[in-house]
Nucleic acid binder design. Structure first.
Length: 125
DNA sequence: CCAATGACCTGGG
DNA sequence: TCCCAGGCCATTG
């Protein structure tokens, strides 16, 4: 198995779990990492989400990337993570459209809107 | 090969 | 509550 295959498998695992986040809820990069049994790879969860289409459809990936609600993934501190301005704005719009309150265009109350199902890695380690 | 770079996380101050 | 240092690790140049 090549390095690319491993990376792709990781991406698929991320996408499948992101699809489980209920409408109107959010979870963290770190929690997705725990769900795929890679509790130390929260940064790589973020890397995987970068491959998702922002606007146009990608046909070079054997996976329905248009079905992945990437906007429901935020940082464990409850804030929209920094990156290019455009997609941050879009994330806020998409969240508000499904009823999630976003304070100051960046902060979300995880007690109200968080989705953090139990995992085997509830302690970071 | 090595250094820099992230859509990150936690604990301490 | 906010901020930061240190840890983390795949990817990129």
């Amino acid at each position: 198995m090549s390095r690319e295959d491993l990376a792709r498998a990781f991406h698929y695992a991320v996408y499948e779990n992101v699809q489980m986040i209920p409408y109107g809820h959010v979870t963290s990069y770190g929690h997705i990492a725990k769900l795929i049994y890679k509790p130390r790879n929260s940064r790589q969860v973020g890397q995987a989400l970068k491959f998702l289409p922002q606007g146009e459809t990608r046909l070079d990936y054997p996976y329905n990337l248009n079905n992945v609600p990437w906007w429901r993934v935020i940082s464990s501190s409850g804030t929209i993570s920094n990156r290019d301005h455009g997609s941050m704005i879009r994330q806020v719009e998409l969240l508000r459209a499904e009823g999630v309150q976003v304070i100051n265009d960046s902060k979300i109350d995880l007690v109200t809107f968080g989705w953090f199902p139990e995992t085997e890695f509830d302690e970071y380690d």
